[in-house]
Design a protein around this nucleic acid. Structure first.
Lengths: 132, 132
DNA sequence: CTGGTTGCAAAAGATTTGCAACGGC
DNA sequence: GCCGTTGCAAATCTTTTGCAACCAG
């Protein structure tokens, strides 16, 4: 285990991640942090996003089409993927229900379930009203 | 809508996908189908996997580390991702519970939820026993 | 014949990495 | 000063695509 050292770039990345609800891709994080650090490189953004993910301060959300997305909220919660516009939204569920699911899943499964996350798919509110 | 035409390559890909429970990457599908069609190209494998996914005869499972995986079982079911060895396993849940989740999620959500899928994380049985 | 499909290779997109300079501690 | 971090560019990995030949209907 190597000691972690402070860096202004990493802090800016983390601040941006925690402030937005947009579940940005690495590229979008890069574009925003670039406003404050014009010389920052995409490689640094990737390195720090992975580092934050590894130490549990961010989530990496894989996407079936396109780049992975990142979430500054590392607490257990779920996501909704709009199949029309591609947006990713947070979606909170009753904790009891979530625990029930893990318990129920453990019953017929050979292994240890440590966590779970649900992906919901459909049309988001914006896309539904745009369609009318 | 363009008419779909039979191809031996597509059939071989589909057969392999339906026969395995390994949730293979495109590359692994390629290596297996190559045994029967030595000249098949990776591009053809990708084209057909995407086609099968589009017409609902396969699922594309995005992975946070590495290539997407494909599943020949297109019926709604869930997956377990072993955080130690990276294997992806099927995991079935009570249908009632799944419906409850979608209903419960719809209540506080502005949009239309059409489907959902749960990703479970932890250690698979093999990795647990290997560790002892 | 017509038009979907294939193999090949090049291109595109996303992410990682080697390296020398830099910056925390 | 030591060693983690950065910027840059090149490399790697995954997936898509243009094109001419091919094949199913």
């Amino acid at each position: 285990m190597t000691a972690l050292k402070y860096s202004r770039q990493r802090e800016a990345i983390k601040n941006y991640l925690m402030a937005t609800k947009e579940h940005p891709t690495a590229d979008i994080v890069y574009l925003h942090v670039k406003e404050e650090f014009p010389n920052i490189s995409l490689g640094t953004v990737y390195r720090n996003l992975n580092l934050l993910t590894d130490i549990g301060e961010a989530l990496k959300i894989p996407s079936p089409d396109g780049a992975d997305r990142f979430d500054g909220n590392a607490l257990p919660h779920n996501h909704f993927f709009c199949t029309t516009c591609g947006r990713v939204l947070d979606l909170d569920l009753d904790i009891k229900k979530l625990e029930e699911i893990n318990t129920s899943a453990s019953e017929n499964f050979d292994g240890k379930i440590e966590s779970s996350s649900i992906a919901f798919y459909g049309k988001c509110g914006k896309c539904i009203s745009r369609q009318n």
